[in-house]
């Protein structure tokens, strides 16, 4: 074998592809040493006599990158050698790697999934959905052209989204500074992130807070620091956690009802009347649900004289104070 310095440089994707092929082809698994000395992309840099620490670190990173794609790369201990790192064997079990053959997608379903992928045009989920579509296309299904063109988009503007979604996946406990509505100072929270849900156009984190022993909902836009991962992990939440998070948000939303008078024919009349769950009371005013008094007050303030909050008093005061503030700031 030629010395490392003149060895041909193998592109990263060729090394990763070769690693996946090698691990798919083995039932018993391969040891790290077998991989580094024989698999394309490693073997060129492998030293039979010397130190392979760099190459080992590369292998660790490659394993993470491959697992990140959803490839179930397994580690198994050799019989009778539990705890011996050098005898660990690696493999990709075919059954957990391959899409079950009974899963097929019709052209209509494929069209819907393409639309669903289009929703994520920013943030880490755009990469995820792009790769999901690649896998879908590998099945060879063609799509039906939708009658009407759609360009849906969910924004992920909050910088906390990506680190939280990684923590969710890896089940890592995280810390961040959170500015609670109505409080002046942000406080550092340590939580186990269970779900990320968008409700009424806003992203929320549903998380266990060990300190208080409670499950809480945090508004992502009120996370005012970077999200930092700790070294602690937590057990997987039940599969229906997102439904639970959305149901709790809905419960809060349902529990808050405002009565708002709107000028007939105004923008407030047209748009507020179309909010989900909006109804008209006996007096002709709109009955509207909301989640957070501060957020809803901001929205109602935008309508200026077109909307007048009748009840509750807290919301009435909040809208009035906002309008007075804006008038004063521009006076």
């Amino acid at each position: 074998m030629p010395p490392a310095s003149t060895a041909p440089r193998i592109p990263v994707e060729e090394r990763l592809f070769s690693l996946v092929l090698a691990l798919l082809a083995t039932d018993a698994g391969l040891t790290k040493n077998e991989i580094l000395s024989t698999v394309q992309g490693y073997r060129q840099k492998y030293s039979h006599s010397g130190d392979n620490a760099n190459l080992e670190r590369q292998f660790e990173r490659d394993k993470d990158d491959i697992r990140d794609l959803g490839v179930p790369l397994e580690t198994i201990e050799s019989p009778g050698q539990a705890g011996n790192n050098q005898s660990l064997r690696y493999r990709i079990p075919r059954g957990s790697y391959e899409l079950p053959s009974d899963i097929v997608f019709s052209p209509e379903e494929t069209t819907l999934l393409n639309l669903a992928a289009m929703v994520w045009r920013e943030g880490s989920l755009s990469g995820e959905s792009r790769r999901a579509i690649l896998k879908l296309r590998s099945l060879g299904v063609t799509t039906t052209e939708p009658v009407l063109g759609y360009a849906p988009r969910v924004r992920v503007r909050e910088p906390a989204f990506d680190p939280l979604s990684t923590a969710l996946e890896k089940r890592t406990i995280v810390k961040f500074a959170y500015l609670k509505p109505g409080e002046r100072e942000a406080r550092v929270r340590t939580v186990a992130p269970l779900a990320l849900v968008q409700h009424q156009g806003r992203w929320h984190l549903y998380a266990d807070e060990p300190e208080s022993g409670a499950t809480k909902t945090f508004l992502l836009r009120r996370i005012v620091s970077q999200v930092s991962a700790t070294s602690q992990t937590f057990p997987a939440p039940p599969a229906d956690t997102t439904e639970k998070a959305l149901a709790e948000l809905d419960e809060v939303w349902n529990a808050h009802t405002a009565v708002v008078e709107v000028q007939p024919g105004s923008d407030a009349d047209t748009r507020l009347g179309k909010r989900r769950g909006a109804s008209v009371s006996d007096s002709g005013a709109l009955e509207l649900h909301y989640s957070d008094v501060n957020i809803f007050a901001d929205e109602l303030a935008s309508y200026g004289p077109e909307a007048l909050v009748v009840t509750p008093q807290e919301l009435r005061d909040a809208v009035k104070a906002r309008l007075e503030r804006t008038a004063a700031d521009h006076g």
Binding site: P72, L112, A116, A117, V119, S129, R131, K135, L139, V154
Partner: peptide, 21 residues
């Protein structure tokens, strides 16, 4: 032999997209 499975996050992105739509 076959197409790969979706990763947990890939499936989640498509499922959430479907809900949104």
């Amino acid at each position: 032999d076959d197409s790969p499975r979706f990763s947990a996050r890939e499936a989640a992105a498509l499922i959430a997209g479907l809900q949104y739509l």
